[in-house]
Design a protein around this nucleic acid. Sequence first.
RNA 1: GCGCUCGUAGCUCAAUUGGAUAGAGUACUCGGCUACGAACCGAGCGGUUGCAGGUUCGACUCCUGCCGAGCGCGCCA
Length: 569
Amino acid sequence: MKDTLQLLIINSLESLKENGVIEELPESIRIDHSKDKSQGDFACNIALVLSKQAKCTPRNLAEKIVSNLTVSDKVDRVEIAGPGFINFFLSHESNTSVIENIIDEGEGYGSSNVGNGKRVLLEFVSANPTGPLHVGHGRGAAYGATVSNLLRAVGFEVNNEYYVNDAGRQMDILATSVYLRYIGTEKFPDNGYKGDYIKSISDQLSGIDKVDILPNVKASSDDSNDIERYMDDLIVSCKMSLGESYKVVFDTAINNILDGIKRDLSGFGVEYQKWFLEQSLIDSGLSNKTIKTLQDSECIYEKEGALWFRTTDFGDEKDRVVVRENGNHTYFASDIAYHLEKLERGYDKIINIWGADHHGYIARVKASISALGHDPDKLEVLLVQFANLYRKGKKVSMSTRSGSFVTLKELCDEVGNDAARFFYILRKSEQHMDFDLDLAKSKTNENPVFYIQYAHARICSVLKQASEKFADSSAYDLSLLSNDYEVSLIKSLNRYKGVVQSSALNYEPHVLAYYLRELAGNFHSYYNGSEFLVDDSALRASRLLLISSVRQVISNGLKLLGVVAPESM
RNA sequence: GCGCUCGUAGCUCAAUUGGAUAGAGUACUCGGCUACGAACCGAGCGGUUGCAGGUUCGACUCCUGCCGAGCGCGCCA
């Protein structure tokens, strides 16, 4: 419908151009849904945009545009309002036709092909496998999964990917922590992983010698400045004492945790096409090869025994180390190789969803993409702000190392997947968000997700009773749907497709969530103000068709959000 | 100190991406079940959009400077 109106405007503008009223045609013409029904169904601001070059007032220009509009049977009338908006009032028939479209297309209604089959790689969560996912990760998981659903719905081919940091010092700290629990030492270091899950993993170890690795350590655990070196010494001692068995401890630890992460995400309705292991970049030699490539193109220099990547040449604030003095690659080195590998897989777009604490890495990753001869704009980084957790009005601080955190699974068990998924995406991702655990747990009825699900269940209930009480009747007449409730409901239905598209293209799932709430609200008002199962069969059939289409849209929308649309609750 | 993300009703958040009178939920005050599910509906109350300038037909939105919050600024991940 927008296209039709755009065409009408363009035709009018072209004739105005011939008459010399305007000089240039605009690049694009915005047609928006009106927010108030006194402003019709669609509004166009083109007269305000062009008034300067037309050298007349916006209202004046609007009148000229309108007088040149060709008549369409889809448009009842056109008005000029406010500073010069052109408001279109559509015919009742063109508004109600959406109902039949929804019924015809069913579950497919709302999807489109604006993505044109372009391939997108979407990486999200990617939390280090050093412990179970906590509620902080939940936001990224819900957001990523929903963005993925939305992009698929509008015609992109999307692959979801989780990057597993299974190499590096943190993993050694994890393995050492597990071993220390296994031998049951009393002197567990403060900077080890202290969560209860470490003990559970150590319980699964058997047949490995219990050697006290603490005496071999030189640095002191009492010196707070030395605490990280103390940990490094512990790791070395652990590796030396265990020999071959170290790998068993290491693998047991990571496999347990990774399995748990996979299970939690799957239970949360989040599916991945690929779990990409950092270790595979090292094993395949890609990490080394990438650094070699950068060295050949003279992007790398040596300073104080380390290799530095000249990222400042590509807009970063300072140069970054890729190979440490001790010969180990940094996390950044793996990341360069990983992004190169992603690009070489041939995606049209690469999206990373990161926690807001990683924003400092965007510049250096983009720099590395440029340095390797790729287009840095192919990478889009979406930042998700932290969720501050509150319990009994007090902020809960969380840390994986100290083991004090609320896990994602605990949250889902307490409030349910639907409420958790919905709650997470209800806020714009870059908005800081307060997650009140007591509110989510104790007052779940106030969560808007139930409000929407309730509308769906109510419609199902009405439809069920209709089919029991009345024989089939397809003789509907949509022109009968003319009371205020019906008009605003139909207006909302007409917006759905556009909402899905903008929600997807802007990576803003909350827009869809708010829309569904509004649609459900319109339905609840309708329900309380009108009776559906009336004696007049044509009116009854029309109203039932209308609420069937509402049910379909709610169901389709909730599915995109990963929320169940129940027939009863 | 520098950088990033923010600041909207008592509280939690929206605002068609620069549009018309800034809207929902919650809290509070009234009212509505012998109709298809009251997990609902209706009415009211609630605002100098952190502050001060600027850009233009038009600013919560863009620019500048302050104030405040969170996060970054390591040869950690």
